[in-house]
Design a protein around this nucleic acid. Structure first.
Length: 424
RNA sequence: GGUGAGCUGGCCGAGUGGUCGAAGGCACUUCCCUGCUAAGGAAGCAUAUGGGCUUAAACCUGUAUCGAGGGUUCGAAUCCCUCGCUCACCGCCA
């Protein structure tokens, strides 16, 4: 959520910055709501003040044993007017909140301006795509004889589900293990195990709700709903909801390996083959909760933490700075890591690292006490370190051999019982 | 699922209808004293939001907030209802 004060004070500038990310801020509606709010709020609070003062007088009079009926008569008529005013105020404030909750974050000044993914800016490349002297297969064809089984996934659950068995299942686990061990042992993150189902408030906190309900899976629970997490960014970041963190505990660095559940509504027909786009996929997530002054340094650091995995796996990739039009709802700045997929002859997203600045923290009321002792909003960052399924795809495609086998990257061999190759 | 007890400021904890946004303690900030890895004294110290004022901060002031929502009342931390959560015991259970 944006700072409403900033909107009031500097509306035109913010509208322009939001336009850069293809968001049309309803400025007229906002101004009208604000004008109404001001009138109603003043009126309501005046009535409340009147009532409070009178009630206090009644209390004083009664404690002295005096007759309070005169004052009582005076406030008698207030009740209905006050109730109506309060109801109206609630309604306007709720409308303003809904409006605010649907406004995306402001892009940082360093974010390239652009309309869509074609205008993202490549920052650097690492590694050279391998030259193949045979016809490359995609991961689905490479993995099929080894236990990568889309038919069984479809039988059990439908499209966009994968069943893995044998050495593919083990490789998948090995990849996750390597990621988790690297982030905890080398990069200082604390390993977490989190719920996979969360309540509505949690998703509002990180910005998935109320705007993106259709992207989530949910299930009825009591009189309400629980939602399957679309990423453990949700659970890790919400650990600081309604907290005031001590300065000396910053930065907070958390990681978790969890499944992620996404309805992929609106992506029909895209990436239909293979396990690029699934309703359920595993991800090792990194979250940092930091002092505002440090958030951009943390962003660069986290990109490095994600890159370290790709480098350990010897997978060629590039780092891309997303343009204003391609960034996610809560991000002020995002880098994507794109891994080379030889079968697609292109780089594909495998990690996304974002600085949300105070956008999530404001919703979460996640704060720290600054040098003056005043609570101040934290900055939150999240990034994949990395998507496990897509990493499996990249390993299979980049390391395939002419005979159909797949060499196992050195970094994964300890997790595969010393095995160096997946054979048919 | 059943029964019982709880949920108060950064933390602990008092407060069962009226000068309560809330005693006391801890922590923190400033000052004083002391001169030593400590103790004592004084003051300040919840959050959000509106308005005044303002470059801003500070300050003044209104309102709301004592798990959440609703109700009773001129007035609710306090009474009533619903829900959530925590703890204990019982039942069931991977």
């Amino acid at each position: 959520m944006l700072d409403i004060q900033q909107l009031r004070n500097d509306l035109d500038a913010l509208v322009a910055r939001l336009a850069a990310r293809k968001f049309t801020f309803p400025a007229e509606e906002f101004k009208a709501l604000e004008a109404r709010r001001k009138t109603i709020q003043t009126n309501t609070e005046n009535l409340q003040a009147k009532r409070n003062a009178a009630s206090k007088q009644i209390g004083i009079a009664k404690s002295k044993g005096e007759d309070a009926s005169a004052i009582l008569a005076e406030v008698a008529g207030l009740g209905d007017a006050l109730k109506a005013a309060e109801a109206e105020l609630n309604e306007v404030q709720a409308s303003i909140l809904v409006l605010m909750q649907n406004v995306p974050n402001l892009p940082h000044d360093s974010v390239p301006v652009g309309l869509d993914e074609t205008q993202n800016v490549e920052v650097r490349r690492w590694g050279n795509p391998r030259q193949f002297d045979f016809a490359v297969k995609d991961h689905a064809d490479v993995g099929a004889p080894m236990g990568l089984d889309f038919d069984t996934g479809a039988k059990l659950s439908g499209a966009r589900f994968t069943f893995m068995k044998g050495q593919i299942a083990k490789l998948h686990r090995a990849i996750a293990q390597l990621m988790l061990d690297t982030q905890t042992e080398k990069h200082g993150y604390t390993e977490c195990y989190t719920p996979y189902m969360v309540n509505r408030e949690t998703l509002v906190g990180t910005g998935q709700l109320p705007k993106f309900e259709e992207d989530l899976f949910s299930t009825p629970h009591n009189d309400s709903k629980l939602y399957l997490i679309p990423t453990s960014e949700v659970t890790l970041t919400n650990t600081v909801r309604d907290e005031i963190v001590a300065l000396e505990n910053l930065p907070i660095k958390l990681t978790a390996h969890t499944p992620c559940f996404r309805s992929e509504a609106g992506s029909y027909g895209r990436d239909t083959k293979g396990m690029i786009r699934q309703h359920q996929f595993d991800k090792v997530e990194m979250v940092q909760i930091v002092h505002p002054e440090n958030s951009y340094a943390a962003l660069e650091e986290m990109v490095g933490h994600a890159e370290a995995i790709l480098q350990a796996l010897e997978l060629p990739y590039r780092v891309v700075s997303l343009c204003t039009g391609d960034m996610g709802f809560g991000a002020a700045k995002t880098y994507d890591l794109e891994v080379w997929l030889p079968a697609q002859n292109t780089y594909r997203e495998i990690s996304s690292v974002s600085n949300c600045e105070a956008f999530q923290a404001r919703r979460l009321q996640a704060r720290f006490r600054n040098a003056n002792g005043k609570p101040e909003l934290l900055h939150t960052l999240n990034g994949s370190g990395l998507a496990v399924g897509r990493t499996l795809v990249a390993v299979l495609e980049n390391n395939q051999q002419a005979d159909g086998s797949v060499t196992i990257p050195k970094a994964l061999q300890p997790y595969m019982g010393g095995k160096t190759v997946l054979s048919l």
